[in-house]
Design a protein around this nucleic acid. Structure first.
Lengths: 145, 145
DNA sequence: TATTGTTATACTCTATAACTATA
DNA sequence: TATAGTTATAGAGTATAACAATA
């Protein structure tokens, strides 16, 4: 058995590899996919995206700009704050995101399916505990179904 | 409780954030740190690095070139294959890697320390199981002590 | 022929610093 | 003054395609 740190780093590498593989099948980069997942369930402002993805505001400008150019999202002026903008997925972006999200979910479900059912439940429960303890931002939205 | 995919993606995001934070404290990028961790316990060839980090060979050339320029590693001709080179950490690179490795390990140990002891052991055991099932490359070497 | 590695190229991603506009 | 966002810049990271040298 590995030490806890080794197990966690390598598990993350595994999850990241699966995420990246699904990204590449859709011709989308990992940061672009993360951006779209963050917008999956609701529109958000630039600052909010910046905080959730832990990127500088200026990095988000470029990220959003490229996704917009590809037709996956759009900017709108905020009705309440004339400095702010609201970023939302377009129908095309929403569709891509849902497909992507479903495939990543399936791949990770398959991964855990190789475990004994009890272990699978424990893993999910304990990972949830950690994520909630540590205030990890909601970078992967919520299942649709 | 989250679904398994949501829990896994968010846990990975958490681990990645910690890893990236320790990187930035050392003025090193995540790919550079991954490269050094892969070399932590043994020298490797370019192709081997390419396979372990799942990067194109040409990407590894640049990665190694920049780390070499910073004095963290060195290239040597392979004695057995005149096409190949062997990449090793320099003493400075070894020292940085050990410090980095220790800090990431400590941060992840602290993270898991918030869990009940039984949960912590389960998490480590199940993550190890997944990693071994899936042939995840050894991207985080082995603890020194 | 296959493998090892590099080069040239083009693009994405990222942070820093300086800026505008609004709150 | 603080916050929301952009622009300019410079550098790292990445893949593709084409290549040279060796196995």
């Amino acid at each position: 058995m590995f030490t806890t740190p080794v197990a966690l780093v390598r598990l993350s590498y595994l999850v990241d590899s699966i995420y990246a593989d699904v990204c590449s099948r859709h011709g989308v980069s990992v940061p672009q996919a993360q951006l779209m997942c963050v917008l999956k369930d609701q529109p958000r402002g630039m600052s909010e995206i910046s905080a959730m993805l832990r990127l500088d505001k200026s990095s988000v400008t470029g990220l959003v700009e490229r996704a917009e150019r590809r037709g996956y999202l759009s900017r709108a002026m905020s009705p309440t704050d004339r400095r702010a903008i609201t970023v939302s997925l377009t129908p095309a972006g929403k569709q891509l995101t849902d497909t992507f999200y479903g495939q990543v979910s399936q791949r990770l479900t398959d991964l855990a399916a190789h475990l004994p059912a009890a272990d699978r439940d424990q893993l999910t429960r304990i990972a949830t505990l950690l994520v909630l303890n540590e205030d990890v931002p909601d970078v992967f939205g919520l299942p649709t179904s």
